[in-house]
């Protein structure tokens, strides 16, 4: 079978399949990072649009997409901060009831929250988190450490 076949029997993965497989996981990731469904939808859409032209050239499209979405969410917070004067997008605020932990997460800096989500929701390794966040491995450790300390100080004042 196929190992030596000169012509692949399997056609290259289609972008549509990739989109269908990854849309929900990315939506969930973006929601955890932004705490807003509307914003998450928007950012994930943008990320797919952004990645599409490079489809086929990416060695690890899923990791690349994850990084793109994470960056988009992180940048969204930065942008929102600057735009706060003009636009109001209350993340999470008006959506249903959430537990205390979710509210505590909302008080963290976006970067620290992202480190926790990647670590404790996606179960990524330090190296993969560093890759997704675009930081060094050592930073992941300090981000996580400080984020947990932040959470604790909110939950156990």
């Amino acid at each position: 079978m196929g190992l030596a076949d000169p012509e692949p029997l399997v056609s290259p993965p289609r972008f549509e399949d990739f989109y269908r497989a990854q849309h929900e996981p990315m939506l969930r990731l973006a929601y955890l990072l932004t705490q807003s469904r509307a914003v998450a939808e928007d950012l994930v859409q943008d990320s797919f649009i952004r990645i599409q032209p490079r489809w086929g050239q990416l060695d690890t499209p899923a990791a690349y997409l994850r990084r793109t979405v994470t960056n988009a969410c992180y940048s969204y917070h930065r942008r929102r901060k600057r735009e706060e004067a003009y636009v109001s997008l209350p993340p999470g605020a008006s959506e249903a009831e959430h537990d205390e932990m979710w509210d505590a997460l909302a008080t963290l800096s976006p970067r620290r929250r992202a480190a926790l989500v990647l670590r404790y929701y996606l179960d990524l390794s330090e190296a993969d988190i560093a890759d997704a966040l675009g930081c060094r491995k050592g930073t992941v450790k300090s981000l996580t450490h400080r984020a947990l300390a932040d959470l604790r100080s909110v939950l156990e004042p």
């Binding site: 929900e24 939506l27 969930r28 990731l29 929601y31 955890l32 469904r37 998450a40 249903a96 959430h98 537990d99 979710w102 926790l116 989500v117 404790y120 929701y121």
Partner: peptide, 8 residues
């Protein structure tokens, strides 16, 4: 995180 994610 799991509970919140599952709502999306």
């Amino acid at each position: 995180l799991r509970a919140e994610a599952s709502t999306v």
